[in-house]
Nucleic acid binder design. Structure first.
Lengths: 215, 215
DNA sequence: TAGATTGTTAATCGATTAACAATC
DNA sequence: TAGATTGTTAATCGATTAACAATC
């Protein structure tokens, strides 16, 4: 069977993560007025190999100019398009406790085209209010309000006990892309795309290295 | 040159991360009263290969019983020792905004032996107060108060602008293991161990897959 | 043109997995 | 003992890096 023109060759996840890092670097370079950059220069900023940078890009096309390198503005635009960061994604934030509030105000999201369009929280003191103009609803209204805003991405920042219930509600509302901050294993169907952010695993690996080093 | 008995063979970082995951699973299994588990059963819970589980463990010793598997309580204790989770690590939390407060209350840390022993924040409204009995100091007192508590690990949850200054203060106080949540690149000496937690990169990779899928 | 840097192939490296003797 | 499962070696796979012809 010939490969559909929609389908790319299998892209390593690490490549996607690096593209995301390159993009941020290019945004900075553009601000600084830098016009071109070579794969060598770009690689050095992250301790990577220049061939790796070129190979990461080669999965998606030819963006450079031999003898010159890459035009910063052009490459930035290409990568934003590839990563889907050239448009606005309305996002639902579920849970407005400390973590939810921190994520709400997190600069990195909005800078890359993610816009928190609605907040869900079951605290009666919060329902019906808004944060910076973004309305807060109870999860009972999740499907209706998420659909009204054509939301495809949710950020989950609720207590572990509530996480599965909210997830089921999100799936029922047709939201299949979930970034989960609750430290719990969620059951989702195969076609859903769930990414768990584990806040404590990094600390545990740090303690390993600390424990290895006799003081 | 014979390998020093202190030095382990080079351990892949992914192995350390998986050990951390196994440990949490074993804690749960122990709570559930499960006495033994095979590499096969353990692997299935995370979609891994049983040989990988055995190999991860083999870096550190022989913990299983042929024909039986692993005794849950024994393996848990071994892994906790390896990861340095068998003791209490006093931790400094720097920055008590929304994110800092969320991390302060995060259950995962304390469950694994990390105890936030002191908080630093330069908000005059917070200095001199405490959270759940943990004192809050200004960063001017960082070196003195961190040393008094023999702190070796810091969690950084301050705004990006403040992150480098705080980092320098931490290093000056002899704290060389830092978990950084500020979305900024920190300069640290070679012997420091810095781990950056990037809250937005996961969202960006999710948007890549979403952008690939024509609706 | 000469120098620089890309895009790509081939070589290398390291991590994952299969297979199986050892042994509970 | 027979069955099960480990610890470990060998095979496989995939990602990284080196090398270089193509070309600006």
């Amino acid at each position: 069977m010939p490969r559909s023109s929609y389908r790319l060759p299998k892209i390593p996840e690490m490549t996607i993560r690096r593209l995301s890092v390159y993009t941020r670097c290019l945004l900075q370079l553009e601000e600084d007025g830098v016009e071109t950059i070579s794969s060598q220069e770009l690689a050095e900023r992250f301790g990577l190999n220049s061939a790796q940078v070129r190979k990461d890009l080669a999965y998606f096309g030819e963006f450079g100019v031999r003898g010159i390198g890459y035009y910063v503005t052009k490459l930035k635009a290409e990568l934003q398009r590839i990563l889907g960061l050239d448009r606005e994604w309305p996002v639902a934030l579920v849970g407005l406790g400390n973590l939810g509030a921190a994520l709400f105000h997190y600069k990195g999201f909005s800078r890359q085209g993610f816009r928190i369009a609605v907040v869900f929280d079951d605290d009666p003191a919060k329902i019906g209010r808004d944060v910076d103009g973004v309305p807060i609803f109870g999860t009972a209204d999740l499907a209706r309000e998420a659909r009204a805003r054509e939301i495809q991405i949710a950020i989950l920042a609720v207590p572990s006990e509530a996480a599965q219930g909210v997830t089921d509600a999100l799936l029922a509302a047709g939201i299949k892309t979930i970034l989960n901050f609750a430290p719990t294993r969620l059951r989702v169907p195969k076609d859903a795309r769930l990414k768990n952010v584990d806040l404590s695993i990094e600390l545990e690996t740090l303690s390993f290295y600390l424990a290895q080093t006799p003081r």
